[in-house]
Design a protein around this nucleic acid. Structure first.
Lengths: 157, 157
DNA sequence: TTGTTAATGGAAACCATTTTCATTAAGGAG
DNA sequence: CTCCTTAATGAAAATGGTTTCCATTAACAA
């Protein structure tokens, strides 16, 4: 049960078991919700969506599962500056829905954008390679985020 | 007293007063510490450093001041995934010390890097312009961060 | 089926950050 | 220089997302 670096390929049934994690109803429920929902869900959002169908899955399990999924690289943990983590299904850097975020610092509105993504991905790949070598890091992940005021909020001022 | 968008040029004496903020001992102390310290300080770090010289500046004021400075664009608020915000003096995108961060997800070690910064800055400028126009955002700021395992932590596994 | 041990839930603990509120003092007006 | 308005402050209490504890349950390998 290699519990360490399990961020490689493979979809979750295999991935879980291959990494020594057990496949439980709670975990399936969470992955199910995550794959059906668009957007950036907080732990509590997920709890609310899971609860009706699986009333016996507690918030604690949500947190623990998200942590596992995040370590496996299957889920991205996001921070938009309100003080709660958000989660979304991760996809490979070439995956169809690769995107980054544009966050309004005033109303916390978030826009997913895919513009310029190809150039970004290109540069990031280079950078990742370079930095990994230079600083001896095994890079698994990156974040790009832009902050500013959305049109509504900048009109307000 | 235009309390709104005061992120322009000018150093802090003028900036403060020009924006209707008052210049207080606490604020000077914090800016002083920030400009003398290297690295990524938490609110409490700053408190500890400010305290000996200004024992009557409370932690609350540190938080409030950092918030103001951050809104003015004079300080960057960072998030490295441990659950406390870090702060560092901001410099303009072309400033001498512009850098991004490389974070170990295991031991939370942070490396400041400046490699590839020019290419990054170039791309980001473009992206910022494009996104700002397309989504009607007034973009003021961005974050790039790489995550991975430092050599020590990846050896441990 | 059984045994080992990972996973779970509920409640309590944690702890960085915010809020409250009475007090102080910055800095413009006169 | 003094007064006055109101921003800024500190101490203590509140907040609230996330973690920890611990006794119980259940995955899944043998």
């Amino acid at each position: 049960m290699p519990r360490g670096n399990c961020r490689g390929q493979g979809w979750w049934h295999g991935k879980f078991q291959g990494c020594g994690y057990r496949l439980t109803a709670g975990r399936e429920a969470i992955l199910d919700i995550l794959s059906k929902s668009e957007g950036h869900l907080s732990a509590e959002d997920i709890y609310m969506k899971v609860h009706p169908k699986y009333p016996n899955v507690g918030l604690t399990t949500i947190y623990r599962t998200l942590d596992v999924l995040s370590n496996l690289g299957m889920v991205s943990k996001l921070d938009f500056g309100d003080r709660r983590a958000r989660y979304e299904l991760a996809e490979g850097p070439k995956g169809a829905h690769h995107h980054h975020h544009l966050v309004c610092t005033d109303c916390n509105k978030v826009v997913d954008y895919t513009d310029f993504i190809d150039d970004e991905v290109e540069l990031l790949r280079e950078t990742e390679k370079g930095l990994g070598a230079k600083y001896n890091f095994k890079i698994t992940n990156h974040i790009i985020q832009f902050y500013g005021l959305c049109n509504k909020c900048s009109a307000k001022k």
